[in-house]
Structures are given as structure tokens and as C-alpha cells.
Design a protein around this nucleic acid. Structure first.
Length: 583
RNA sequence: GGGCACGUAGCUCAGUUCGGACAGAGCGUCUGGCUUCUAACCAGAAGCGCGGGGGUUCGAAUCCCCCCGUGCCCGCCA
């Protein structure tokens, strides 16, 4: 309802300003602070005060007088409060919110018909997913869900980097070394934990072995790269044997979050279909293409890049960015918009990619990036190759373990109404543990650096998923054994806590809209926390099922609780966090 | 050296796009609350003037300039 109200306010203010013969370019619409009855406000009077030579308060009063609230469904009254023009909503604003909130899909916006591709994670298939890059699947999955809620047709893509040097190294190492050569047992039963040992062994060998031996190995690695470039089928099969196994394990790990993908697009596919070769030829024909030291490069100084972008090595082979250009033209072909979630270390590359795409005549307005900073350990960076880092599997296991302890502690602490068996404990522990990890990451602005600390990542009491999940479980506790009334009179909701909760409920679709526009799922995380605050206050102050509650009031409160349950469940759903029915 | 990010209570973070109502939460500290729909909760107290300095403005955490600190990037790697 908030979006509808705001639209009415825009129209009303524009009309009022036109009546007064004032400019309407900036309406100064904002949400008032806590403690103000208004739901929407405007600070436009400040700006017009100078022009009119009158104090802001007087201007605000004049504007408020010029609005006829009767023309609008949700605007009850527009009044000046000091220099602000404040808008109070009609009873139907609350009544319609109470109705809309009871739909299971409350918060989902109407379909836009826009096809959006969200590429995220795309971690090189070299080994177990570690926490350093865990931000990518968590933020990426939330962005995809958010755009879905905002009404777009979303496809998620994992771009598989199976053509680079590291995969050639991996393939060589996998074929060269035996189990006996490895100096450690796999840390886990899953396949990527087994195979990563070959990758690490290979890298160590290249650093430590006799120069002659290293040269022989390098020859083999080069022949793999050349084979891929030439589209040699046997080489391709050899590399894929490693890629598919490791990727399969990584997918299982990501599924625990859960992060799922509609498409796995392989980098080699743009070599095998000739797309990269054709693209390089088009680049060669541009005015910006130059040959330096035998390599084809792009002079992108017009776009502000000092560094030239090499797109063909002196031996004629393509580079990652060359293939990624073909990849992106493929995206542009198939989708209306393309969003990529990537680490800040790829920022320069992404900028050059965009410039090159423009150079090739693409409309890059359809391309957007969500950039995040890596999660580091107190002692430094995490690395798959060196084997330093916390595995995402370990983090999730630890989170679930700590959540299980909490659930069990609470079982001992108090007598509960609901019956919880061992399966329930396990389910709740998983929902809460994984949810806590996701919320910890998705609730922060992605561009801020995070240093990983176990106790911080696994703090269930701070502003965390469990707090929001708990509010949801409480709402279920009220609704579970109760008939949800068909009729509910919103005007009976008069307590501060009730009105506040209803106001917050009304905001939800608007928050989805804003967060999706900005590609910022953390806005949903902030909202969800504030919403849980409002619900918990309501829960404390307004009994629903108590005997002395008037039946009509009870019906209204039940409807409000149903709206709250849907809002909490869907806000969590946007973030990819489960909403337990009991905790 | 250059480019890009980030710097808000003791700690972890919202707020910065689009400048406006007293700068907000959680944790921690202190106080009170479970015969009442789940106390992973609620209510209250103390605590920051937004890295530093200039500027623009009626008004700056928010915009501009300089400086300091931290991170990332500046490969014929990905």
C-alpha cells in the first residue's frame, strides 16, 4: 500500500505546486522519523522558501492547504508540521494492507516481463568452496531472489572457468600424480576434497621441483592449453573429467546454503563454437586495436584505462577476458538485463570488459555489477591453491552444531506447548544455523570488508537470522491451532504496537521495490529486523488468544498476525533463509 | 606512484544514491520483567556527533577539495 500512497502523494503535491505556480521538479518526498504520525512527508517547503521569500513553515502550510485530500483513496489529510508537509493515511490504507498482507505471496510485485540473468559465484573449479568467496553465492542468490520478487523473470548462471591455465595445471597434476604422491588424506569424503590434493600437489611441484622437471611439466600444461584453443576433442575430454567432478562437489556444497543455478555455462563453449575467434577478429578491425610485442591489444584510454587490454597472446591464443566478451554478447542476445556478482579484485577487468563491449557496439546499459569485498582471515587471505582458509562446509557444520545446542538447551529450560522430536531438533538446527550464516553475510553492504571471526559469524543473539526466525515461529504459534477469520476490521487495531506493525507491513512491497532497483538485498535484511522488532513489541503488548480479548478485536489481531507471518516468511525468503514454524 | 572502495558508540553494523524533523540498532555494561499466545523475547539507563581539516548551503554523516589510515587492483593469470 505504501507504493500506492506514495504515488498519490506525488500526484497531490504536484497538483498543489502547480496550483501555486511553483516548480515541481523536486517533491522532496521522504519517510518521516519515528514518533511522527505521518506515513509520508515532504521537505519541499525548504527549497521553495527562498523563492517565495516566506519562511518554510508558512510555505508548508500553503502547500498543505492547496491539497484536496478527498480526491485520493489513501490520503486522509495533508498538514504542515513546522516546515514539513506531512501526509496521514486513510482507514482504507490500513484496511487494504491488512487484506493484502494475508496473501501468501505478499511482497511479490507484479510481473514486469523482463528477462534478467544473474551470474554469480562462478568460482574456479579447483577445490572446496571456502568462506573467502562465500559472499558471492549468498549475495548472488539473494539478488536473484530479490529480482524474482520484484516481478522479473530471473535465470541464474554459474560461469564455469574451465579454460584457464589453472585448469590445465589441475588436469596435468591429476594425470601425473598418484595417491601415493600425495601427503595428506582428504579432509572430507566429497570428491572436490579428494581432487584438490592433486591441484595443490601440482602447484607445489611447479614451485619446488628441479627446473628441468618443471619445464617438462610446463610443456604438458601448454599443450593442454593449446589443445583447448584448437578445439581438440581429446584434450577437452581430459579437462572436463576434472572439471565435472570438482564442480559436482562444489555444487553439493552450495546446495547447502542453498544456492542453486539454472545454468552452468562453460567458458570452453565459447571457444568450441568459434565465438571467441570471431569476436577477436571483430576486435582486430576496430580503430582501438594495436599490435604490441606481437600481441593484439585494445587501447581503451578513451574510456579512462591507462592499461591496454590484451585480447590475443603473441602465440595467438585467447585470454579470459576475450572469452568473457563472447560470453557477454551471448547474454545480451538472450536476456534483457544482465547482473554479475563479482569480487572487488575483478573490478578493473569488469570495467575493461564493459568498455570493450561498447566498442563492439553493444548497449551496456543492460549490464550491471554487484561488487563485494573478500572475506579475509585475521591472518590474511584465503587460498584454495595454498590450502589456507575456512571451508564453507566447516562453517555450516559448526553453525548447525551450535544451533543444535541452543535448541536442546531450550528444550530443557522450559515447558513447551509444541511437541518436538529428534527430527524437529535437527531440522530447526539446520534452518537456524544456516540462516545465521546467510544473514550475517547478506545483511551487510557487500563492498565493506569482512574479517572472519567464528564467534561473530555464529552469534545467534545479535541482530541475526534467529531473531527474525523466532518472530516468525511465534506468529505460527498463534496461528497454528486457530481459524484465520475471513472478516477483519482494521479499525479495531488502535494500540500503538498494532498500528506500528501495520505501518511496517504496508512498507514491505516498497522495500522490495527499492532494494531490487538498487540491487541491495541488505535493505531487505534491515527491514526484516525492524519488522521483527515491531512484531515482538506487538506480541508482548497485545494478546490475541487470551480469554478476555473481544472476539472482533481477536479477529483483527489474527489477521494482523497472519500478515506478519507472511511478511516475515517472505522477507526471509528473499534472503534465502528458511522460516521455521517452531523454534 | 596511479585508480577504486571503505573509515559512524568499547565491539559489529544500518543510515551516504536523491543533503532536511533530535545520528539509529544489536552485542557488551547497568536496571526491571516468565502462574499470561515460545524470555533466541520485552521495557528502561549510560555511551557516538559520524577518521581529520577546509568549503558549498537556510541546513552536511550525506555534496566538493586536501590530508591520514585500511583493503583491493594496476600480468601475453583468472
Amino acid at each position: 500500500m505504501f507504493l500506492a500512497l506514495r504515488a498519490e502523494v506525488e500526484s497531490a503535491l504536484t497538483g498543489a505546486l502547480e496550483t501555486l505556480d511553483l516548480p515541481t521538479d523536486d517533491l522532496g518526498i521522504e519517510e518521516p522519523p519515528e514518533g511522527v504520525d505521518a506515513v509520508v512527508a515532504s521537505s519541499v517547503a525548504f527549497r521553495l522558501a527562498g523563492e517565495l521569500g516566506a519562511p518554510p513553515a508558512e510555505v508548508a502550510a500553503r502547500i498543505a492547504d492547496a491539497v484536496d485530500a478527498d480526491e485520493y483513496e489513501y490520503v486522509r489529510e495533508v498538514r504542515a508540521q513546522g516546515p514539513y508537509v506531512n501526509v496521514l493515511p486513510t482507514p482504507s490504507y490500513y484496511a487494504d494492507t491488512l487484506d493484502a498482507g494475508r496473501d501468501d505471496d505478499y511482497g511479490e510485485l507484479p510481473a514486469t516481463g523482463e528477462d534478467v540473468l544473474v551470474e554469480h559465484t562462478s568460482a574456479n573449479p579447483t577445490g572446496p568452496v571456502h568462506v573467502g568467496r562465500a559472499r558471492n553465492p549468498i549475495v548472488g542468490d539473494a539478488v536473484a531472489r530479490l529480482l524474482d520478487y520484484a516481478g522479473h523473470d530471473v535465470t541464474t548462471e554459474y560461469y564455469v572457468n574451465d579454460a584457464g591455465r589453472q585448469m590445465a595445471v589441475f588436469t596435468w597434476a591429476y594425470e601425473t600424480f598418484d595417491e601415493d604422491d600425495l601427503d595428506s588424506e582428504p579432509e572430507r569424503g566429497r570428491v572436490e576434497y579428494d581432487l584438490v590434493r592433486y591441484y595443490r600437489k601440482g602447484n607445489a611441484y611447479l614451485e619446488e621441483a628441479h627446473p628441468d622437471a618443471v619445464e617438462a611439466a610446463e610443456d604438458e600444461i601448454q599443450s593442454i592449453l593449446q589443445g583447448l584453443e584448437e578445439g581438440d576433442e581429446e584434450t577437452y575430454e581430459r579437462v572436463q573429467r576434472v572439471v565435472d567432478q570438482v564442480l559436482g562437489g562444489m555444487r553439493e556444497c552450495l546446495l547447502r546454503l542453498p544456492a542453486e543455478f539454472d545454468e552452468f555455462v562453460k567458458e570452453t563453449s565459447f571457444m568450441r563454437d568459434g565465438g571467441t575467434k570471431e569476436l577477436a577478429e571483430r576486435l582486430q578491425e576496430t580503430d582501438e586495436a594495436v599490435i604490441e610485442d606481437g600481441a593484439w591489444q585494445l587501447d581503451l584510454s578513451e574510456w579512462g584505462y591507462e592499461k591496454k587490454l590484451v585480447f590475443l597472446r603473441s602465440d595467438g591464443t585467447s585470454l579470459y577476458t576475450t572469452r568473457d566478451l563472447a560470453h557477454h554478447e551471448w547474454k545480451f542476445d538472450a536476456y534483457d538485463r544482465s547482473v554479475t556478482v563479482l569480487g572487488e579484485d575483478h573490478k578493473l577487468q569488469a570495467g575493461q570488459l564493459q568498455a570493450a563491449l561498447e566498442l563492439l557496439g553493444n548497449d551496456t546499459d543492460q549490464l550491471e555489477n554487484v561488487i563485494y569485498s573478500y572475506v579475509n582471515l585475521p591472518e590474511g587471505k584465503m587460498s584454495t591453491r595454498r590450502g589456507t582458509g575456512i571451508d564453507l562446509d566447516d562453517l555450516l557444520d559448526e553453525a548447525i552444531q551450535r544451533a543444535r545446542e541452543e535448541v536442546e538447551k531450550r528444550l530443557d529450560d522450559r515447558i513447551r506447548e509444541d511437541d518436538i522430536d529428534a527430527d524437529d531438533v535437527e531440522r530447526i538446527a539446520e534452518q537456524v544455523g544456516v540462516g545465521a550464516v546467510r544473514y550475517d553475510i547478506v545483511s551487510k553492504q557487500p563492498q565493506k570488508a569482512i574479517t572472519f571471526e567464528w564467534d561473530e559469524a555464529l552469534d545467534f543473539e545479535a541482530q541475526s537470522a534467529p531473531y527474525i526466525q523466532y518472530a516468525h515461529a511465534r506468529s505460527c504459534g498463534i496461528l497454528d491451532d486457530t481459524e484465520t477469520p475471513d472478516e477483519a476490521d482494521a479499525s479495531l487495531l488502535e494500540a500503538d504496537a498494532e498500528i506500528e506493525l501495520l505501518r511496517e507491513t504496508a512498507r514491505f512491497p516498497g522495500v522490495v521495490d527499492a532494494a531490487a532497483t538498487d540491487l541491495e538485498p541488505h535493505q531487505i535484511a534491515t527491514f526484516a529486523r525492524e519488522y521483527a522488532d515491531a512484531f515482538n513489541t506487538f506480541y508482548r503488548e497485545c494478546p490475541v488468544l487470551a480469554d478476555d480479548v473481544d472476539p472482533a478485536v481477536r479477529r483483527a489481531r489474527l489477521a494482523l498476525v497472519a500478515s506478519a507471518r507472511n511478511t516475515l516468511a517472505n522477507a526471509l525468503d528473499v534472503l534465502g533463509i528458511e522460516a521455521p514454524r517452531s523454534m
